[in-house]
Design a protein around this nucleic acid. Structure first.
Length: 495
RNA sequence: GGUCCCAUCGUCUAGUGGUCUAGGAUAUCGGCCUCUCACGCCGGAGACACGGGUUCAAACCCCGUUGGGACUACCA
């Protein structure tokens, strides 16, 4: 592959907050495309809006990208360092006659727009300064009148057109595009210009971005043409909407759409990437779970859907804290990945809970892995290991009041039976699945109670939970000594 | 207001004129399993927005309507 043919893509977030799922999705698609084609992925921070940009935000975005496993080959570059270049490009356009200075003030423009709106006329700039006579310009210049720079959109019946890889042929008539501002009266360039100039400098070959950029593309193409440079290929992707069909945004959705929210709530990074990729992209064969290698292999721009996708997060849903499909994919990975791969995430979780024991990776390592394997089949997120799974890793666990009432307090007899169970289990020489089961069923028969009563009572006492793995597995996992201890302590629950 | 984009089960989607009484995933409901809860297995319900064309034949092509979205700033 020659240099000219190498794919170069970029992800240009503006650092005005955390990375949200829409941005993450765009980054992932760009990254995948670069991986797939052996191309280059550039990260560029568009920080020219100083008021809204912050270093914390940059750090947060990088952190989220790293967590997702989205790696970049170049950058991060900072747009603010190239402002002079952007302005120079605009000046070049003025010299070449592709742009002109506009001396209209903001107030004048607002007034014109207001009137036009009232008369239901076009809100476009009327081109006053485009048609200024040389002597008028001289006068304004001599007076030092502040000016903006506007691109001179070709006049006439023509149109700008391009073939979007996802949306197909898009055409826009010149008359529908106004002479838009590319440099402010304070000398600062506008995004639409900076973005193009940066893309030219970075040699971007494919612009893969959200569909919200679609309507601005004809304007940008006009800039490329005026600058006389090659026009990159465009591929716009569908947007991510909320359940009310509105574009998701930090403002209205807050933490719920932040990548870090999913990190904090126990998502495995790759599971989250896998879910995000499925929002607006698919394979004809309906495959949905992909390893990283498989996804890179399978990915193609042709699989991108044109219709917007809804991120099905149901706020206040007691059962799902986010899109059920996202959870189900995470669950899938949590249950099926080799334990060693999820081990680090569980360690992090237990450390967060303050119940990490270094021996889990030392003398208790075997046990640790086995226990994870035992309990993970009914967990959905890694935080479950520190919550419902807490009783396996720490003796300091809570007894859920509901099962306490239903499985323990309701059966007065357990007050006597717990110590008995403790004694008999303590006496077992082989604390195995078979032996514990035999012992417990024996006691049930002696006592003439249903084994289920004993079992559920024990489960609640030993794990604090109303549910969990088979009780005998639980006993083995927690261990003879701790089981006996917990059963004896359970008598106090009746007080 | 103007310009543009979009439209298949609740949600994510397959589908590019006949093989669609529309497939998968997830969610949901029922059953089996069972010490609980999951898993697993089996089964159920659930969609082509509407109206016109074109065609022997339309979810697929065209037009319109409706609905949704984006863009439209001296924000990025």
């Amino acid at each position: 592959m020659s240099m000219e043919e190498q794919v170069i893509v970029r992800f240009p977030p503006s650092p005005s907050g955390y990375l949200h799922i829409g941005g993450a999705r765009t980054a992932i698609f760009n990254w995948l495309f670069a991986q797939k084609t052996g191309g280059k992925f550039i990260l560029r921070i568009e920080d020219t809006d100083a008021d809204r940009s912050s270093e914390e935000s940059v750090a947060g975005i990088l952190e989220s990208l790293k967590w997702l496993g989205v790696t970049w080959d170049e950058g991060p570059y900072f747009q603010s360092q190239f402002i002079a270049e952007h302005v120079a490009a605009a000046e070049k356009l003025v010299k070449s006659g592709h742009a002109y200075k506009c001396y209209c003030t903001k107030e004048q423009l607002d007034e014109k727009r207001r009137e036009a709106k009232q008369k239901k006329l076009s809100l476009q700039y009327d081109g006053t300064c485009r048609n200024l006579r040389p002597e008028e310009i001289e006068k304004k210049e001599a007076a030092g009148t502040p000016y903006t720079i506007r691109l001179k959109v070709p006049s006439g019946d023509g149109f700008v057109g391009f073939k979007d890889i996802v949306y197909g042929i898009i055409e826009k008539k010149f008359e529908d595009i106004e002479d838009f501002v590319i440099v402010r009266s304070n000398g600062k360039p506008l995004y639409i210009l900076s973005n193009v100039v940066d893309d030219i400098r970075d040699g971007i070959t494919h612009i893969l971005r959200g569909q919200d950029g679609l309507a601005n593309t004809p304007k940008q193409i006009l800039i490329y043409k005026a600058l006389g440079t090659q026009i990159p290929k465009f591929a716009h992707m569908s947007l991510t909407l909320d359940t009310k069909k509105a574009k998701i945004s930090k403002r209205t959705h807050g933490e719920l759409v932040a990548v870090r929210f999913y990190r904090e709530h126990g998502f495995l990074p790759w599971a989250f990437v896998n879910y995000l990729v499925l929002l607006g992209w698919s394979m004809p064969d309906a495959k949905e779970i992909f390893s990283k290698e498989e996804l890179i292999e399978a990915f193609s721009l042709e699989g991108i859907n044109r219709a917007n996708a809804v991120f099905d997060v149901r706020k206040d849903d007691p059962k799902f804290f986010t899109d059920p499909k996202a959870i189900s994919i995470n669950t899938h990975y949590l249950r099926n990945l080799p334990i060693e791969e999820i081990e680090p995430y569980i360690k992090t979780e237990l450390e967060k809970e303050g119940i990490w024991d270094p021996e889990f990776q030392g003398s208790k390592h075997e046990w640790f892995l086995r226990t994870i394997d035992l309990i993970r089949t009914r967990f959905h997120v890694t935080t479950d290991f520190g919550a419902a799974g807490r009783c396996y890793f720490s003796d300091d666990y809570l007894i859920d009041p509901k099962p306490l009432k239903k499985n323990i307090l309701k059966h007065e007899g357990l007050k006597e039976w717990f110590p008995l169970l403790a004694d008999r289990l303590e006496a077992l020489e082989a604390f195995t699945l078979e032996e514990t089961e035999r012992a417990i069923r024996e006691i049930a028969e002696e006592l003439k109670v249903k084994a289920g009563i004993l079992i559920n009572g024990m489960r609640t006492a030993i794990t604090g939970q109303p549910k969990g793995p088979g009780i005998f597995d639980v006993l083995i996992a927690i261990g003879q000594h701790r089981v006996v201890e917990r059963l004896r302590k359970a008598v106090a629950l009746f007080e």
